[in-house]
C-alpha cells in the first residue's frame, strides 16, 4: 500500500517472522522453568504481548498506516480490554470467600 512497505520487501517480513518464532520458543522455555504459576503467567503474558504487538504492527501493517489510525485501534482496544479486568479479585473469593487471600 504505502511506499515504505514496498521498499522494504520481503526481508522485513522474514525478520519479524523469525522474531515471532523465537518469542514463541521463549514461551516454551518459560513453561519448563521452575517457578511458581503466577510468575510464569506474568512472564508468558509479557512475551505474548510483545508477540501480539509485533504481529499487529508489522504483519497487520499498523506501523505503516497513519499514526492516527494506530492510536485509534490501540487506544480503543486497550481501553475496553482494561475495563474487562475489574473482576479478578472475585476469582480469589471462589476459594476462600475473602478478597486477596490465598
Amino acid at each position: 500500500m504505502t511506499t515504505a512497505q514496498e521498499h522494504n520487501g520481503i526481508g522485513k517480513d522474514l525478520i519479524v517472522y523469525v522474531c515471532l518464532l523465537a518469542l514463541a520458543g521463549v514461551q516454551f522455555v518459560i513453561a519448563y522453568q521452575n517457578i511458581d504459576a503466577s510468575q510464569m503467567l506474568t512472564r508468558m503474558l509479557v512475551v505474548a504481548c510483545v508477540e501480539a504487538g509485533l504481529a499487529a504492527l508489522f504483519f497487520m501493517h499498523l506501523w505503516t498506516e497513519k499514526r492516527g489510525f494506530l492510536l485509534f485501534v490501540a487506544v480503543f482496544t486497550i481501553a475496553v480490554l482494561l475495563g474487562l479486568q475489574y473482576g479478578w479479585t472475585d476469582s480469589y473469593r471462589m476459594v476462600t470467600g475473602a478478597p486477596f487471600s490465598h
Binding site: A79, V80, G83, Y86, G87, T89, D90, R93, P99, F100
Partner: peptide
C-alpha cells in the same frame, strides 16, 4: 460507561474494594 459497571453489583458479594473502585 466501561468503567462503572460494578455499581450494579454492590450487594452481590463482590469484593468490597471493587465497590469503591466502581
Amino acid at each position: 460507561s466501561y468503567m462503572v459497571y460494578g455499581h450494579h453489583m454492590f450487594v452481590s458479594g463482590m469484593n468490597p474494594f471493587s465497590s469503591l473502585a466502581f
